[in-house]
Design a protein around this nucleic acid. Structure first.
Lengths: 131, 131
DNA sequence: TATAATAACAGTAATCATTACTGATATATG
DNA sequence: CATATATCAGTAATGATTACTGTTATTATA
């Protein structure tokens, strides 16, 4: 795996954001430094970086668009059903791995894990609704 | 909302299956009774039925294809990462709504619910691996 | 440091699931 | 039964993502 300047820029941009950009957003931002970069290159790199475990790819069913996360530590996500923002939950109460054992009761098959995210309205959208 | 024969057939097919067919699968099956039916009609009806609360639409991020469920009672799902089958979990230990309150601790925003499904290897794929 | 092997690139075309559009047809209601 | 309109079949368009291709950049090695 060679380390191109484009890949460095993509990784660096992802590192600079605590939200979870889409490939399109990565593209438009990295484009400022590399005007010729192509969207395919962004996708390929994001997927390779995810494959290598350096970033995480999140596919939220509701959104239909993949989001990429520089933070590979296990943590929970919240998706605002109003503005579609993806927000990290505080790390305190986030170990829900026990539900795998719970779900395995009476199930004939091997449960290896789960996909989970929370839905609702974020602070920003709540404030706007008050007006 | 008028009740067309096509919509009846779509609903009836969905009722006959305990798995969770995709629009494509519904299409190929209903096509036997209505050779001229179009895929767009299937999608439109499935979405309208879901909108009306008569069926449920599931968007599993890993799969990228929507699945439709005649059973609207709340229950949990298992997705086989080997054959992509969607299987209902037994109803006993399936109320995980308490995790919403857990996740809300320390989060500034309104958590209204969550999306959850389990991943692993189904019985059929486990048996095949033994050989 | 020069060179050769090849991973990665930009650009473009293709794919796949899904939705939107259009004129014709079927369904429900008065 | 007639009228209004929801739904239809067929087709085109969309949007996210992936695949292809000939060229360029990176890395290992001599």
């Amino acid at each position: 795996m060679k380390f191109s300047r484009q890949r460095a820029a993509i990784l660096s941009f992802l590192q600079s954001r605590k939200d979870h950009p889409t490939a399109e957003l990565v593209y438009t931002n990295v484009k400022e430094e590399f005007p010729n970069i192509s969207l395919g290159t962004v996708y390929r790199n994001l997927n390779q970086l995810a494959e290598a475990g350096m970033i995480t790819k999140h596919s939220f069913g509701d959104l239909g668009i993949d989001h990429f996360d520089y933070n590979t530590n296990p943590h929970q996500h919240f998706v605002c059903s109003c503005c579609n923002a993806v927000i990290d939950l505080p790390a305190e109460h986030n170990d829900f791995s026990f539900i795998d054992k719970e779900a395995a009761k009476g199930f004939d098959g091997l449960i290896q894990g789960h996909r989970l995210y929370f839905c609702g309205i974020c602070r920003g959208c709540l404030d706007q609704r008050e007006n």
